[in-house]
Lab assay of single mutants.
Amino acid sequence: TIEDAIKKLLKLAQKGQPYTFGDFTVTSEEEAKKLAKWLKKQL
């Protein structure tokens, strides 16, 4: 689910690992949080 993807994304971001989700490449926890907010709006 999208919720699971968001959780995984935040965990990876906390470890400092870049994470690619579709067109987004997230390289920081701050970016992960922005992406998570955006994804929730898409639901």
Rank of each mutant, 00 (worst) to 15 (best):
T1Q: 08
I2L: 08
I2P: 02
E3L: 14
E3Y: 14
E3C: 15
D4P: 03
D4C: 15
D4R: 13
D4I: 06
A5H: 09
A5I: 15
A5W: 15
A5V: 14
A5G: 03
I6L: 11
I6V: 03
I6N: 00
I6D: 00
K7N: 08
K8C: 15
K8S: 05
L9H: 01
L9N: 00
L9T: 00
L10M: 09
L10H: 01
L10K: 02
L10Y: 04
K11S: 10
K11T: 11
K11M: 13
L12A: 11
L12T: 03
L12N: 03
L12E: 02
A13T: 05
Q14Y: 11
K15M: 13
K15Y: 10
K15V: 08
K15L: 13
K15A: 11
K15C: 14
G16Y: 14
G16F: 14
Q17I: 15
Q17S: 07
Q17K: 07
Q17E: 12
Q17P: 15
Q17G: 12
Q17D: 09
Q17A: 09
P18F: 11
P18Y: 10
P18V: 08
P18R: 06
P18K: 06
Y19N: 04
T20Y: 04
T20I: 10
F21I: 05
F21D: 02
F21K: 01
F21M: 04
G22Y: 14
G22V: 12
G22P: 05
G22W: 15
D23R: 05
D23F: 15
F24R: 00
F24G: 01
F24H: 03
F24M: 03
F24E: 01
T25C: 10
T25P: 03
T25V: 11
T25E: 05
T25H: 11
T25G: 05
V26S: 02
V26E: 04
T27L: 12
T27D: 05
S28V: 09
S28E: 03
S28A: 04
S28G: 04
S28W: 11
E29N: 06
E29Q: 07
E29G: 08
E29V: 13
E29S: 05
E30T: 08
E30I: 08
E30V: 09
E30C: 12
E31T: 07
E31P: 02
E31N: 05
A32M: 12
A32E: 01
K33Y: 11
K33D: 06
K34G: 03
K34R: 08
L35C: 09
L35A: 01
A36Y: 14
A36K: 04
K37S: 09
W38C: 07
W38E: 00
L39M: 04
L39E: 00
L39Y: 02
K40H: 13
K40F: 13
K40C: 15
K40M: 14
K40Q: 12
K40Y: 14
K41A: 10
K41Y: 12
Q42C: 14
Q42F: 13
L43G: 02
L43K: 03
L43Y: 08
L43N: 03
